[in-house]
Design a protein around this nucleic acid. Sequence first.
DNA 1: GGCGACTACTAAACCGGTTCAAAGACGGCG
DNA 2: CGCCGTCTTTGAACCGGTTTAGTAGTCGCC
Lengths: 359, 359
Amino acid sequence: METGGRAGGRVTLATVASALGVSRATVSNAYNHPERLSPRLRSRVLRTAGELGYAGPDPLAATLSRGRVNALGLVYEDPMSFAFSDPAAVLFLQGVSEVCEREDLALVLISGGPGSAVARVALVDGVICYCDIPVDGKLAAIVERGLPFVVVDGPQVPGAGHVGIEDRAGAAAAARHLIDLGHTRLGVVALPLVDDEWEGTADLDRQDRARYRASRERLLGYQDAVGAAGLGWSAVPVEERSPYGRDAGRRAAAALLARRPRPTALLAMSDELALGAMAAAADAGLSVPGDVAIVGFDDVPAAADAHPALTTVRQPHREKGRRAAELLLRRGSPGPAGDEHRLPVELVVRASTGPPPGR
Amino acid sequence: METGGRAGGRVTLATVASALGVSRATVSNAYNHPERLSPRLRSRVLRTAGELGYAGPDPLAATLSRGRVNALGLVYEDPMSFAFSDPAAVLFLQGVSEVCEREDLALVLISGGPGSAVARVALVDGVICYCDIPVDGKLAAIVERGLPFVVVDGPQVPGAGHVGIEDRAGAAAAARHLIDLGHTRLGVVALPLVDDEWEGTADLDRQDRARYRASRERLLGYQDAVGAAGLGWSAVPVEERSPYGRDAGRRAAAALLARRPRPTALLAMSDELALGAMAAAADAGLSVPGDVAIVGFDDVPAAADAHPALTTVRQPHREKGRRAAELLLRRGSPGPAGDEHRLPVELVVRASTGPPPGR
DNA sequence: GGCGACTACTAAACCGGTTCAAAGACGGCG
DNA sequence: CGCCGTCTTTGAACCGGTTTAGTAGTCGCC
């Protein structure tokens, strides 16, 4: 299908140049450096180009010489449609896109993780990995390509920028809050610890093998608080479901709430999981926080709108997105200083937590 | 900052070739056409490449020769962060991204509309315009570039694909539903009609100038039903607020509900607007549907979760996204057949509508 | 009238690959 | 032994521009 070209081959800069009897450099200049051209010739060039149906320098070819694509990649591990249904990811995307707009950059969404076929060939100046990078084993395509990149929430990778939050401290604050309220029987609604789609109660061994950095750190945070309170960590059930959405939280919480003695408080590793847990409590005819207290992690908008409003650990999702994008843009300039950002979190106490029943 | 290159210039295919004393074609073949090479030489090439720190053919250069970028652009008119907070847009994005993943394509988000600087240079094989294209006046950069493109919900553009829904029929069904229930005093909570950020009651003249195709069609649909019922359209106030989010709905509805006599039913052009209108009703101490009936448009997930659940016009957002992407991929093959898709809508009656008070 | 400074434009190298026709090596076959 | 087909590998053109060094031509000035 004809998309602008002429029958006898495509109209290129050279076509225009020879039609006018000028050099290609001149035509190029007419578009990119008007001041290097007499106004008269420039307008002749532009007019002829118009008549020939020349749409201006091909951005791809221009990019090849200039070396800059003006696009920023965002790598996600799961299908992108998951990202769009995860409110935390959406907030993060908003932060990234704000910077892209300000800098006139396109935002290239790359799914399938840093080793995918798309990641191998995507035309970008740099990449934000909104996922874990497998530090062990085979390197990711992104790394191999030598593209500047920033890892968000994942592990620190040599040579890459990093943006994260105080996962461990935040999780500890959440657990401490429950413990301070008097809870002693806790349960954890966990994000996936390993990318094997496994479901069940994660024992200490599996907890130890946790691959996802955020999951691991939050688990450690809970553990810190439980340990500090003199409660035994091994008595705290950690329920893992896959994938990481609201339904997973519902199912994990259902399992926890079916235990006897029943936990009086649930620590959810994300708000989506927590909201699922609230649904599970309702399913079981339990009141929140009367029968069971629930605390989330993220503070997405839905947390404040929930009934009861969700106690959670607030993290600055949009800011994380902005920082990641800005960090990536600064890459290329010297000085590894400021290549790591660890953003603070804050416990937000709302209505979903209270003292345990009978206290 | 060094990102993979050597001090003495970047490592290219030519570097590897001369290091081995073979031609560049051979090195290229080692990556792209292994079968054209003796296994022995191929492994030599790959090994040397590894030693030299060559990351494989540069995708950008490869693209230039091959002519295909393997990326699909999505143009949005407002800031992308708006798109991410619009549930309908998010569903649409999910549909598009599903196809991208299946086809191993990157999804390039382009904000600022089809004439923006980013649209002018974005490296994509084709573009989906999730926004109106200004058919009059200056052509969009996308059109000028001769890229294949598909317009969604917008006007039909010669040479472009098109995906839309039965806006007019859907809107008419919504209005008819209210009229059948006995409502005679209606009000419209409108999406922006013109891109001038104007706010107020849109008179017939402004309604006539409505630039956004979906807004215009829905307005016509309402008008169809009102006219068919023998009610006067000019008596129906159309409140316009900007931008198009929940807060706009709340403010527009507040203005409508402050009128005397008060409308007994509100037609909202989107679910977000309708949800805002429900908030406005609550603000005014009115019950829904007891004092005022509300019907939306879109059927986003939040519509079913609302209290009361929202009566609305369902449209297949994800399917629209999938269709748009697939249509774009098919472009380039002959036959304009099937270049236009108009998807059906369906009135979904829930709890937010009922008979007018005192009837 | 000669010198230097500008201005306007061009030639050629370069960006980093892909591709295709053709050349060379090699083995099989009559 | 000579001819031919097959398998490897290569040279050169090509993708569509950008850029830098340099060349005419013009002007001002002493």
